[in-house]
Design a protein around this nucleic acid. Structure first.
Length: 964
DNA sequence: GAGATCACG
DNA sequence: GACGTACGTGATCTCA
């Protein structure tokens, strides 16, 4: 974004002031601490002190200082003691629980942070931050200064007025009169009257019982204000409401006093002291470094380098640059001359950016040259759809160094004419390099082994270039680097990482293309907007890479990235591009027959219920079953609604209630129809005639892939009806489908990682593992094994993988938790190594906040230190499961990475199409099927060399059901 | 947009 | 003794 854009955005948002440096930002420090603490994943300093809220706070200030430009910023805190409201209403905020343990040490650190930023801290005993904010807002407004309250607290919304706005730093959204009206249904000056009636359970403000915000707003709108309403309470038509208003009139008045902010508290610092100040950079860096905030520090340092502040070793004493004139120094500049001061551009600002629109071949060649010099090139493609296998390439953006980027439009049309529509009045399309020519110029550098290409989710771009005959290499992916470094700690989308690491909000896609029905494709975006958006993406990608790449070495995660995730990009890109063939006719026939059967069942169910209702509505169904028909009492969930999930319905069906069984049938068929037979047909590409899923490489907490749009990892297989859908996945003419899956990989990995001798022996002997464990645990010889005992052992084996609990196992087996606990006890005695291993994992997780797979992948477990026992227990089960599931995922990735090479070396024409966690699906010329099966099994079984053998089983067929 | 439900490993 | 439970995903539907 250019500075001009940034400035205009600020103005448009209404948060900026007159630009004369007299504006004032009042940050609700206390409010922010709590919100940041709960919104951000737990982070600790090397010494164990939690600092997540401190990081959020620092990032927020940094961003604010960059955005606020010429404004003064002050941070306001609550005083620790009780405040004046408790004097007339002792219960005020009485139900507030103690702050969480991890938050307590952060209060002091946040004050330190404020001081490190050289910002004034405002607090006053006996008053809340909100009262101070109200007072300073009034004072500043009277002095003609524009005020922006940085908070999202609804209690502050009463202060919004001309000259006083609010800004929500977490949502990055301004709050003006319109937003206040949306929330309270009245103008800001009536907010306290509404709050007085509606009350607030969080702050323990009583209000009037039975009246919520909606009703309160309606009443205040009708009567003008609270006193007028109370005076006319007897005229209210609704009897219950009238009575409550009369009865609780005094309580409403007290509530109003509680929520009304005091604008006249004695200000702890004179308003004039709240002026723009130049931060002491060295002090700030020292503080941030002490908290271990590396990315933030390097950002500040980068800025200082740019301004020549580090070269001479000086911090704040360095000579001011032209962008930060001496008048900034409060000592040198007597207050009161604010009007003459030019807008400040602090060193904390996002550096100046230069984005160029490339519309001719020579300019593009210059960018290619530049990339050859720097050796790195961030690349991002823009298309007209999210399916890269079939999307049209609309443009390419490049960045060679931070702040320097370009956009090369290739297929932009006229922005006013609708796509494919003839409009002779429309302006002609813009000047663009023909796609083939641009690709020819780019091919050299994209395939140049000495230029590293950097993308964010490059799998997408890889496909587009592959379709243009370009095999991009070598490639780094900032999304995957982030995933390897911080998997489980947060998401890895570019916008989220930009917020987190760069304290910057990229231009939202919807701002460029709109949303919903009026959304346009990127080829219809005007070039100036396309440039700002697309070039920014390449710029941010490069910046993120610069920050994250060195951490791979520091955190010893290079091997995981280099051997598992990085090589996967071209492999999975080719799978997505290949797509899978679907028999559309089979699906549409299935849809039709399902429609008929659903209609029949629906008729039955309505007859059994004695009335017509929506079976698809769990709410209506619950009411029919338990209120109307009174089939048992029903159990209610958190929301107070009856649960009608399959376990409940199955129980009713067993008691002989036909309707429950019929609803179960209906549910199953409705699911199959809506999720699979209908939706899948629409996902067949008209271009390739196949379905192209997207495999997410950085979505799961354990290292698995996931599949979306459509999800091809959850195609039915368990029921007979479901298998019909799987039969619609077919091979091309002359081809077969080959499915190869790992046998019991997760249980083998438990035996390996926990070093369970007896279990390892059983696997080495090639025994039926569930029968073998049953024999060991229940002491029954294999020859006497019964299916029921084997079933129980199987359930325990699965339970182990999930981080077993007696309750869960009991529910699975339909036995009492106590009985299940006895099974677990015996199991752990027989396989005593397991218990030791599980304890060591949990202890490791508690100590480090993450767990590790056999191949070194880290999975962060934010909940492991939670004070709440249930949440902690949940995290402990995750901690047991993640290394098992994650190691299996690692092994599968190793196999996938070796697969194309192994197939090519053997001269096989098999194509890998899908991965379903422990299964790979291939399409292979009929005559080669058996050979391919042998090669694939070899690669999969050889993907890791462990104490237990890995076994892969292959199946061949004309469709997926047959091959599986 | 959240919650309930259910398809898969 | 308390917490509320099997682990990991994504899509669809209803309802506020």
């Amino acid at each position: 974004m250019t500075d001009a854009t940034a400035a205009s955005q600020n103005d448009a948002s209404g948060t900026a002031s007159n630009g004369d440096g007299s504006g004032l930002y009042l940050v609700d420090g206390s409010g922010f601490i709590f919100r940041a603490f709960h919104a951000l994943p737990m982070l600790t300093r090397p010494d164990g002190t939690p600092v997540n809220a401190v990081l959020g706070f620092s990032n927020m200030l940094l961003k604010l200082l960059a955005d606020a430009r010429a404004e003064a910023v002050a941070v306001v805190f609550d005083s620790k003691r009780l405040n004046f409201r408790n004097e007339f209403y002792p219960d005020y905020k009485a139900h507030r629980p103690e702050p969480p343990e991890e938050l307590k040490p952060q209060f002091a650190l946040i004050r330190e942070a404020t001081e490190a930023f050289c910002l004034p801290c405002l607090e006053l005993e006996g008053y809340e931050a909100d009262d101070l904010i109200a007072t300073y807002a009034r004072l500043a407004q009277e002095a003609g200064r524009q005020v922006t309250i940085v908070s999202s607290d609804k209690d502050l919304m009463q202060l919004v007025r001309p000259g006083v706005g609010m800004f929500d730093p977490m949502k990055n959204k301004t709050i003006g009169p319109d937003e206040v009206f949306e929330k309270f249904g009245v103008a800001p000056d009536k907010v306290v009257d509404v709050q007085a009636l509606a009350g607030d359970s969080v702050d323990n403000v009583p209000g009037v019982p039975g009246i919520g915000v909606k009703t309160a707003a309606q009443l205040i709108t009708e009567y003008g204000d609270l006193e007028a309403l109370l005076a006319n309470a007897d005229k209210i038509k609704q009897p219950a409401r009238r009575q409550k208003l009369i009865e609780f009139a005094e309580q409403a008045r007290i509530s109003r006093r509680l929520v009304l902010l005091d604008e006249n508290v004695p200000p702890p610092k004179p308003l004039d002291e709240l002026r723009v100040r130049e931060p002491d950079h060295q002090r700030l860096i020292d503080f941030l470094r002490a908290q271990g905030f590396r990315s933030i520090v390097s950002r500040v340092e980068m800025e200082m380098l740019k301004d020549g502040r580090i070269a001479d070793g000086a911090g704040s004493s360095a000579a001011p640059t032209s962008a930060a004139p001496a008048a900034k120094d409060p000592a040198a500049a007597p207050s009161g001359e604010a009007g003459e001061r030019p807008a400040r551009k602090t060193v904390l600002n996002v550096p100046e950016v230069r984005y160029e629109l490339v519309q001719d071949a020579d300019t593009l060649r210059r960018w290619v040259e530049r990339a050859r010099e720097t050796g790195v090139l961030a690349v991002d493609t823009e298309t007209d759809s999210l399916t890269p296998a079939t999307a049209t390439l609309v443009g390419v953006s490049l960045s060679t160094e931070p702040g320097i980027a370009c956009y090369i439009p290739l297929a932009h049309g006229s922005s006013t004419a609708a796509a494919g529509q003839l409009d002779f009045d429309a302006p002609p399309p813009p000047v663009q390099i023909p796609t083939t020519e641009a690709m020819a110029i780019l091919k050299d550098v994209l395939e140049d082994p000495s230029v590293l290409k950097i993308g964010h989710n490059f799998k997408f771009d890889h496909q587009l270039f592959a379709r243009n005959g370009i095999a991009v290499s070598p490639v780094d992916d900032s999304m995957l680097i982030s995933y390897v470094l911080d998997g489980g700690a947060h998401g890895h989308g570019m916008d989220e990482l930009a917020e987190l690491h760069l304290a910057y909000t990229p231009i939202p896609f919807k701002e460029v293309c709109g949303t919903g029905k009026s959304q346009i494709t990127f080829d219809r975006v005007p070039l100036d907007k396309a440039l700002a958006y697309a070039a920014e993406d390449a710029d941010i990608t490069l910046r993120l890479w610069t920050l994250l790449k060195p951490r791979l070495v520091d955190d010893r995660m290079v091997t995981v990235y280099e051997t598992l995730d990085r090589p996967l990009v071209p492999v999975v890109a080719d799978m997505e591009r290949a797509g899978v063939r679907i028999d559309k006719k089979a699906l549409s026939d299935l849809s039709q027959s399902l429609s008929i059967r659903l209609a029949e069942i629906e008729k039955d169910v309505h007859a059994l219920a004695g009335q017509s209702f929506n079976i698809g509505s769990p709410k209506q169904l619950g009411e029919i079953l338990f209120d109307t028909l009174k089939l048992g009492t029903g159990k209610k969930g958190k929301t107070g609604a009856y649960s009608t999930d399959s376990s409940v319905l199955e129980e009713l069906a067993e008691q002989g209630h036909t309707i429950a069984q019929r609803v179960l049938d209906w549910r199953q068929l409705a699911k199959l129809k809506s999720t699979y037979t209908d939706a899948l047909q629409e996902k067949i590409s008209p271009v390739t005639g196949r379905v192209h899923t997207a495999f997410a490489l950085a979505a799961t907490n354990t290292g698995r892939l996931s599949s979306t749009d459509p999800n091809l990892q959850n195609i039915p297989v368990r029921t007979e009806e479901g298998k019909k859908i799987r039969r619609a996945f077919v091979a091309s003419p002359g081809h077969k489908l080959l499915s190869v899956d790992y046998s019991q990989i997760e249980l083998r990995l438990v035996a390996e990682m926990a070093n369970i001798q007896a279990l390892q022996d059983a696997f080495r002997d090639g025994l039926d593992i569930h029968a073998a464990t049953a024999a060991q645990v229940f002491g029954i010889p294999l020859e006497q094994m019964t299916p029921d005992i084997r079933r129980k052992a199987k359930a325990i084996n699965f339970g182990i993988i999930y981080g077993i609990s007696g309750f869960g196992l009991g529910r699975q087996l339909g036995i009492a938790p106590g009985e299940a606990n006895a099974f677990i006890k015996t199991y752990l005695e027989r396989f005593h190594e397991l218990k030791v291993w599980m304890e060591s994992i949990k202890s490791f997780a508690r100590q480090h906040g993450y767990v590790v797979t056999l191949f070194g992948r880290r999975c962060y477990m934010p909940g492991i230190q939670d004070k709440n026992a249930a949440r902690r227990a949940f995290a402990e089960r995750q901690a047991i499961n993640a290394p098992i599931q994650g190691t299996a995922a690692d092994i599968m990735k190793r196999a996938m990475n070796r697969m194309p090479g192994a197939l090519a070396a053997a001269g096989s024409n098999a194509r890998m199409l899908l991965q379903v966690h422990d299964e790979l699906l291939f399409e292979v010329p009929e005559a080669e099927a058996e050979d391919a099966a042998r090669i694939v099994r070899g690669v999969m079984e050889g993907a890791a060399h462990l104490g237990v053998p890995l076994v892969a089983e292959a199946g061949i067929g004309d469709n997926w059901e047959e091959a599986h």
